[in-house]
Design a protein around this nucleic acid. Structure first.
Length: 512
RNA sequence: GCUCCCUUCGUCUAGCGGUUCAGGACAUCGCCCUCUCAAGGCGGGAACACGGGUUCGAUUCCCGUAGGGAGCGCCA
């Protein structure tokens, strides 16, 4: 395809616009006009890379008082599943990313559905426009034939591009092939000898040779639109102004610009953000345990912890502190987006998790650990008596980083008989029997005052400091670290403490 | 194979030719606090991939090399 001069003018005009937008950090335009989107295909669960893309789009929209919309790219009927879509929506809203329009949203807009599988009519109109403009042709090559051609090109050291076999077929030849029952795809005619330029929001000016782009399929043999087509067309039709997407789309962008130009539809500003790789440097995949949003959620990571972590992967905030979603949006800036790939580091996420927990009030914390949303709610209720649950939660608060950690403390402090960690058993083995015996005998005199008990034991045994407290801790909690002993003692209660000391006695004195 | 993108402490990154023998955060190590852990305070170690240019002067600009990544699909 040769760009018409008006189309080219348009490009130049847009180049200018984009160049400006880069320096001005998104033009004022008409503020409310900033529309971003997240357009996943419901073929699996979200991983951190997807989530970060969604987050950036959300933050950009929110910062400029615009709209963030969701679109389900479910044109692949084979792989798309309703349950994935539902999971996606649930996970995104759990994260705190709210969208103003999307699949299943009340008040579906004038343009139609936010599921591509239901936008066939709209696509048909656009296909017709393209066909009328002479931008397309049917291609009768079979997948097998194409695969062979590709292989041959690769072997010959050539780029694997469509050869154009069906491009110049005349009407007769086409009719003949169609009559023979061969199904045709529709290809977009890409012209030669020109280049496509655009100003990438994060990578600056880009230029691709049109000659390097083969005629690509925009409609599959079954009549459904291909990604290049539906994705670009929907962005235009839905009035998307800024597309922040993965770097993997960068070299495909010229195709979409060409398409949109042929359709005379508005071209959004594109920003290609770096990829996120997992902590071992491997690319993220839909079934990568530690990088799946679902997995993190079920482990007890908090939405805001994840957002703080992700927002700083490939994006810089001057303030190194924890931020609310509002602050994340307020200080989000396209100019602060980095160009190189970022590694997801669990240690960093853990830091934000601690920060997020730190922000919690007591009630928030109790609700997080024991409430309906808690992934450990049931297991905890099996271990901790309901009436002591709240006290337990507050007791272990400083020793819990993710909800699962509470399970350890529940097991240590509530199970009967009690568990001793290896370290605690070591401590008890080395301790003098008389110390535990003394504690046992003095227990009655100090039923609810650990300090007084400790003082009494100290007086009788002559042991103090670490030598006093560590054995008592090991005996009462079965562990060598944990919450403050005075609070633990209060939680255990006198009868509980007695039972525990007696159990500990069995381990004591292995040395004497 | 071709095209494009990327390359500063272990990790995320600041840096947009000199005021930086490179700053912050996380992680790590040490000390303080302390009955333990955590938190908190103080302090330490730790990086400009390599080679050429350009320049009075390069982490910063240009060109190569190496390494990593992406795209070239009737996947998205």
């Amino acid at each position: 395809m040769i760009l018409t001069s008006t189309a080219r003018q348009k490009f130049l005009g847009q180049d200018l616009l984009w160049a400006q937008s880069k320096t001005a950090n998104i033009p004022a335009m008409s503020q409310a006009l900033t529309r971003t989107r997240f357009a996943p295909s419901p073929t699996g669960f979200l991983h951190l890379g997807n989530v970060r893309t969604a987050l950036f789009n959300y933050l950009a929209a929110r910062k400029f008082g615009g709209e963030f919309i969701l679109r389900s790219e479910d044109t692949d009927a084979e792989r798309s599943r309703e349950e994935y879509l539902e999971a996606l929506l649930a996970d995104l809203s759990w994260l705190g990313l709210s969208w103003s329009a999307g699949p299943g949203h009340a008040g579906e807009p004038q343009q139609g559905s936010y599921r591509q599988s239901q936008r066939g009519t709209l696509y048909a109109e656009q296909f017709a426009k393209l066909e009328a403009g002479g931008h397309t042709y049917p291609c009768f090559c079979s997948p097998a034939e194409l695969a062979v051609a590709r292989k041959a090109q690769l072997a010959a050291g050539k780029p694997p591009r469509y050869l154009g076999t069906c491009r110049d077929l005349d009407g007769e030849a086409r009719a003949e092939r169609a009559a023979s029952g061969r199904l045709a795809t529709v290809r977009f005619k890409v012209g030669a000898g020109d280049s496509v330029r655009f100003q990438d929001l994060v990578r600056g000016s880009q230029r691709f040779q049109v000659a390097d782009i083969g005629d690509f399929i925009i409609r599959r043999a079954d009549g459904t639109p291909s990604f290049f087509f539906s994705n670009a067309v929907d962005d235009a039709l839905m009035g998307i102004t800024h597309v922040l997407r993965g770097e993997d789309h960068l070299s495909n962008t010229p195709r979409q610009i060409l398409l949109l130009a042929a359709l005379e539809l508005p071209v959004p500003r594109y920003g290609h953000i770096s990829m996120v790789v997992s902590d071992d440097g491997a690319p993220l995949s839909k079934r990568h345990g530690s990088t799946g949003l679902r997995e993190l959620r079920s482990l007890g990571y908090l939405p805001l912890a994840i957002c703080n972590h992700l927002a700083r992967l490939g994006h810089v905030y001057e303030d190194p502190g924890f931020m609310s979603m509002e602050m994340l949006a307020k200080h989000f800036s396209l100019e602060k987006l980095g160009r190189s790939a970022a590694r997801h580091d669990m240690a960093q996420l853990r830091h934000w998790q601690k920060e997020a927990l730190h922000q919690f009030s007591e009630d928030d914390f109790v609700d997080w650990l024991l409430g309906k949303e808690s992934p450990v709610r049931e297991e905890l209720s099996d271990l901790v008596p309901a009436k002591k649950a709240k006290e337990f939660a507050l007791l272990v608060r400083d020793n819990v980083e993710i909800s699962g950690d509470a399970l350890h403390w529940a097991a240590q402090l509530c199970s009967e008989p009690m568990n001793f960690t290896a370290a605690a058993a070591e401590v008890l083995k080395a301790v003098d029997r008389s110390l535990i015996v003394a504690a046992l005998e003095l227990l009655d005199q100090h039923p609810d005052d650990f300090k007084a008990l400790a003082a009494a034991v100290r007086q009788r045994t002559g042991q103090g400091g670490k030598n006093l407290f560590m054995p008592l801790r090991a005996a009462l909690t079965g562990d060598t670290h944990g919450p403050e002993m005075a609070r633990v003692y209060g939680f255990l209660g006198m009868p509980g403490a007695r039972a525990r000391l007696q159990q500990a006695l069995a381990l004591v004195g292995a040395g004497n």
